[in-house]
């Protein structure tokens, strides 16, 4: 078997690492779910999976674009392209959402999880409406979201890069489609696992939930992603 080859082992570890990056990314993104859609909780008003996958898939598009036009691109370059695409996607989502929260729903942006915004130092608790969990997307959530989506995009770019090394010598022009679809599969698996861990809503890096759930989600994600990595490399064996 080819498994004992150190390069193969490193690649499996890299796929495991990229899955973990995606899993970690979900925890950074301020997801409010249905309550946030009614401006009754902090964050963007949709589900974890939708946000993580939406930004991550844009990251996948930008990194594959980079790879398609510069086939000799190094791994950090492909990852950076993915990170940038995903971060731009989520930042524009949050900006549009923020405009609607501010000028459409007319709520002050406030987090119910911390007393002071760790970045601006502004007091939060006096702006939180009674009976809600905060509203809108405060500065710390925005920054945390951009960082998180960049991690997710970098993770997506990394899986794509590793898989292309295996598939493109075997099925030259079709490799992009196969690697892209496989990356999408790994993306969905790794964005749903942490969304079960956080139970649907999380505000970002400052949320007390963050510290509580990250270790067990990341552990799960490493194991599952490495399983996916082994599978991905065995697929290449079937193409030759």
């Amino acid at each position: 078997m080819v498994f004992l080859d150190p390069q193969t082992l490193i690649d499996i570890l890299l796929i495991g690492l990229s899955g973990t990056l995606i899993c970690l990314a979900v925890h950074f993104i301020p997801v409010g779910g249905a309550p946030a859609a009614m401006a009754q909780a902090t964050g963007i008003g949709t589900g974890t999976v939708e946000l993580a996958a939406g930004s991550g898939l844009v990251g996948l598009i930008t990194s594959s674009y980079m790879y398609a036009y510069e086939p000799n691109a190094s791994m950090p370059l492909v990852m950076a392209a993915g990170a940038l695409g995903a971060a731009v996607m989520l930042a524009s989502t949050m900006l549009a959402g923020g405009l609607i929260y501010a000028y459409g729903v007319a709520v002050p942006f406030a987090s119910a999880q911390v007393k002071k915004d760790p970045i601006t130092g502004e007091r939060q608790d006096i702006y939180v409406s009674k009976g809600t969990q905060g509203q809108g997307i405060p500065t710390i959530c925005f920054v945390s979201g951009v960082v998180g989506s960049a991690l997710g995009g970098a993770g997506g770019g990394l899986i794509y890069f590793v898989l292309m090394q295996y598939y493109s010598p075997l099925i030259s022009t079709s490799a992009a489609a196969v690697a892209g679809v496989f990356t999408m599969g790994v993306f969905y698996v790794n964005s749903v696992i942490p969304s079960y861990g956080v139970g649907g809503t999380i505000e970002g890096v400052h949320d007390p939930k963050f510290r509580r759930v990250v270790p067990k989600d990341v552990f799960t994600s490493i194991v599952v992603s490495m399983l996916c990595g082994i599978v991905a490399i065995l697929i290449a064996g079937g193409m030759s």
Partner: peptide, 13 residues
Amino acid sequence: GTGVPSIGQIALG
């Protein structure tokens, strides 16, 4: 806690 769609997406993933 995350809505039904998440499980359909992980299934096809």
